[in-house]
Design a protein around this nucleic acid. Sequence first.
DNA 1: CTGAAAGCGCTAACAA
DNA 2: TTGTTAGCGCTTTCAG
Lengths: 327, 327
Amino acid sequence: MITIKDIAREAGVSYATVSRALNNKKDVSEKTRIKIHKLASEMGYRPNVIARSLVMKRSNIIGLILPDVSNPFFADLARSVSNAANLAGFSTMIINSGWDPANEQQQMRIMLEQRVAGIIIKPTGYYATGTYERMGVPIVAFWHPSEDKATYIEVDHKKGTQLAVQNLINRGFKRIAFIGGTDTSPANQLRLLSFQKTLQTNSIQLHHHLISFGGFNAESGYERIKKLMSGPNPPDGIFCGNDYIALGALQYLREKNYRLPNEVGLIGYDDVFFSHLPMISMSSVRQPRDIMGQRAVDAMLEKIDDEMPMAEAKKIMVEPELVIRST
Amino acid sequence: MITIKDIAREAGVSYATVSRALNNKKDVSEKTRIKIHKLASEMGYRPNVIARSLVMKRSNIIGLILPDVSNPFFADLARSVSNAANLAGFSTMIINSGWDPANEQQQMRIMLEQRVAGIIIKPTGYYATGTYERMGVPIVAFWHPSEDKATYIEVDHKKGTQLAVQNLINRGFKRIAFIGGTDTSPANQLRLLSFQKTLQTNSIQLHHHLISFGGFNAESGYERIKKLMSGPNPPDGIFCGNDYIALGALQYLREKNYRLPNEVGLIGYDDVFFSHLPMISMSSVRQPRDIMGQRAVDAMLEKIDDEMPMAEAKKIMVEPELVIRST
DNA sequence: CTGAAAGCGCTAACAA
DNA sequence: TTGTTAGCGCTTTCAG
C-alpha cells in the first residue's frame, strides 16, 4: 500500500505538503497541488482513512442500528439511510439488534469502539433519560422512546390515522373497526386516539366491540376479523395497525367472498413492500422510508458539524400518505 | 474518552503492560491481568479499535456489497452475513451498488480505504481476470462472474431445477414450460440446461414454444404466461426463473380461474419472502440465504487468518431445496 | 514478567 | 508557500 510519504519522496516535497495538496487546503501552490494529485493517481494512492480517523478522533462511518434488516420496512429504511450517507461521503455500519434491548446496547458499544461519527437507531426498548447523552456521539432516533435528549424522526401517526379513517367514512362506511397492534405500542395508542377523534368529528358512532389490540402479524389479523365478522353487528370499514394485520384480515375477507373495496373497506398501515404486489394490492397509510432515511442523515450531518451536538433535541415530523389501491 | 495510558497511570504500570493484560497475552502475571481488567471496567474503558486497526494494518470490518438491500432476497442475505460476522467479532459495512458495475467499483475503493478485513460481494458485472487479486484484500463472491481467483459461494442451480421439474413430472404434467429470466444470466442458462436434461431423462417431449426468456419481474411473467395459455398447445406445468416471474404467472392463472395445483402446476425460484404469504403460498426452489451468508463469512474468516489469502480460489456449493406449498 | 521505545499513516500547529 | 515536528491510541519488538 502506498502512502503519502511515498508520494512525498517521489515529488521531492515533505509529506505534510502532500497531505495539504491532497486535502485541497488553500495554502499550497496550485502548481504543486496539481503535481501531487497527478502523482497520487498515477501511483494508485488510496488514503488510509483509519489513520485519518485516528487523528481526527472520529471515523466517517455512521452507525445504523435496526431491529432486523430483513424486515421489509427496515430494509427500505436501511437502503435509504445508506444511500443518503454515501452521498454525503459517509459509510454506514448496519447492525441488527434482533429486537433485543440488551443486544442493542451491546451493539452501540461496538459502534462506539469504532468511533463512529454518529448513531442512527430505531430503539427497541425504552431508555433511561441520559442514556443517549452518555454515549458521547450524536444520536438520531426513529420514533420517540423517552424524554431523552436526542433528535427524533417521527411520523405523524395522528395525521396518518385521520387520513385513513376519513377515507373510510367518505366512502360511506359506518361501522368502522380498529384492529390495532400491541396495546403497549406508543404509536398504536396515538392511532387509537386519532381514530376516536376522527369518528367523533364526523359524528360516527364508536363501537367498543370493534376495537381490539393484538400481535402485529397476519395470524392475529385473521383471527380478530374472523371473530368480528361472524359476531353480531360486524364492521364494514376496517383500519388496521399495520399491513401484516391487514393482510390477515384481507385473507379472511377473500375466503368468505366479501367484495372489496365496496362491500367492505380495508386500510393497512406502513405500506410495506407486499402491499402493492398485484395479488394483494392493498390500501395503506404509507410511512415514507426514503424521506425518513434522508431526514435522519441530514439531521446527523448537522449534528456532526455542530460544536455541541448533544445540546439540542429536535423533533422532525414526517408526513404519512394515504395510498388507495384496488382492495 | 479514557485510554490505556489512563489505566496505566492509575495502576502504576507501563501502558504496554496494560495492552498486554487487556489482550490476555500470556506474558503478564495473573495478578496484574486481573487488576487491569478490573480497573478498565471500573473506569469505563472502551478500546479504540481505530488505533488498533492502524497498527494491525487492518480493521475488523467486513465489507458487504449488494445490488440493493431493500430487495427481499438481498435483505435476507444481508442479515445472515451481518449476524454471522458479528458472532465472529466482526462488524459489517453494507453498501448498495444499485446494480451499477461502475458504482460497485467505486464502493470497493471506499471499502479499501477503510482497510476492511475483506469484502463479500454479489457482483453486478463481469470482471476482468485479476480484478479481485489486485484489490489486495480477501474477496468472497456470490455466484461465479468470471474466471478470477476468488472464493465463490454458488447455489447448485442444476440440482434446484432438476428438483422442480422432476416434481412437476411426478405430478403428472406433460407439457412443461420454462419461463426464464434474462437470457444473458448465467444462472438462467444453467437452469435451462438442467431443465432440458430432466425432461430428456424422463422421456418427456421438449416443446420449444414453451421456452422463453425475459425480465425477472411479475409483468414479464404475466405477459408470457398469457401468451402461452391463450395460444395453441398450452403448458400444464410451469417452471419460472424466479418468484417474481412466477407471481405474475400466478396472477394470470388465478384471473382465468385455472385450478392450481392440480390443473396447472407452478414452481418459482428463490423462495423469497412473499412466496409464503398466505395469499400467495407459492411453491418454489429455495436458495437458502441463511446458509449462504454463513458460508460466506466462514470462508472469509478462513482467508483472513490465512497467510496467503489470494492464493486459492475455492468454490463452495450450497444446496437449494424444493418447497411445495398449496399453489 | 515488565518497561522503554518505535512506529502504523495521517493532520495540524508552529517555524522558516 | 513549504518543512519540521508532535502527536492520535495502540501493538510489538527488544532490553532488562
